[in-house]
């Protein structure tokens, strides 16, 4: 190990990359929903929490095989996304944005409280530990590698779906001109419901990967909700590519900043960067 080449710095950078993958995955669903429906799901991280509980109960309590439990959890959260749209978002679709924020914020508190009542405040975890991947002196979390792959896979699959299929094209079109969609033979209500389910499914996918690394508790959303939201805003709300790029930038600030200074400073630097970008480009890095 030479003086110029710092293996620990490299480890920090690579860990930042992996964290970026996780954050990118988190931002996908929120961005999709905002981009299409123009409503911010403040309760997005709480949907993820529900997904984590679903994996936990199916796998630990009901002894389903893990992969099956995860697929089911994705289905459950997709359903929750759909339900959220039908019950909560639809009535306020044309309301002021502040009211939309308030209702989804209400759902956030509702889900937290409901989870506390239903599952208790105890921390739960799968008890599954993935091995780590060694690379000389460096060592990385397999769970993070999987999350990274899933984020990459998710973004590519989503991109193909949105650019190559009729349904995907309609999803992009509807955010540009909602009113004339019926003239194309498209039922906007169905597209919205579908997008919500898809956003939920992405939250479910994120849940499956988080549950491999984090304990589950009713307040887990607080650890991920704000940072996910920041990343989406940083990349340009509704812009999926922007969110993807922003996640990796943000993660590098956290990881490398935390390596050179105190861990806390990594976050502080990331937030300073966020504020600076907001002054420079209020609509985000890739926002229009």
């Amino acid at each position: 190990m030479s003086d110029i080449f710092d293996v620990y710095l490299l480890e920090a950078v690579l860990n930042g990359l992996l964290l970026g993958g996780l954050l990118a995955l988190l931002s996908l669903g929120l961005n999709l929903v905002f981009g299409v429906i123009d409503v911010v799901w403040i309760c997005y991280a709480e949907l993820i929490m529900c997904g984590m509980y679903a994996v936990y109960y199916l796998h630990v309590q009901y002894h389903w095989p893990l992969v099956l439990a995860m697929l089911a959890a994705i289905g459950v959260v997709a359903f929750l996304g759909w339900l959220l749209h039908q019950l909560v978002i639809r009535p306020v679709l044309n309301a002021e944005p502040i009211n939309q924020l308030l209702v989804t914020g209400g759902v956030l508190f509702f889900l937290q409280a409901a989870a506390t009542l239903a599952f208790g405040i105890e921390f739960k975890n799968l008890g599954v530990t993935l091995p780590s991947v060694r690379l000389g002196e460096m060592s990385f979390s397999a769970a993070r590698l999987v999350a990274f792959g899933a984020a990459l896979g998710g973004v590519i699959a989503l991109w193909i779906f949105l650019s190559k299929t009729y349904l995907g094209t309609a999803i992009r079109a509807i955010s540009q001109d909602r009113a004339i969609m019926p003239l194309m033979g498209v039922d906007p209500g169905r597209i919205f419901a579908l997008t919500s389910a898809l956003g939920g499914a992405l939250a479910g996918l994120a849940a499956c990967l988080l549950v491999l690394q984090y304990d589950i508790h009713p307040a887990i959303g607080l650890s991920f909700g704000p940072i996910t939201f920041l990343i989406c805003v940083l990349g340009g709300l509704g812009n999926m590519l922007g969110g993807f790029v922003a996640a990796f930038i943000f993660a590098q600030f956290i990881a490398v900043g935390g390596f050179f200074f105190a861990v806390e400073w990594g976050y502080v630097i990331a937030f300073i960067f966020f504020i600076a970008v907001m002054f420079w480009r209020p609509r985000g890095i890739l926002g229009k």
Partner: peptide, 20 residues
């Protein structure tokens, strides 16, 4: 000697520094 926020979503750089 280092502090971190109890709700931090990631502590990998702290671990890296400890290893060092």
């Amino acid at each position: 000697k280092e502090g971190y926020s109890a709700s931090a979503p990631d502590l990998s750089s702290l671990v890296t520094k400890l290893k060092r």
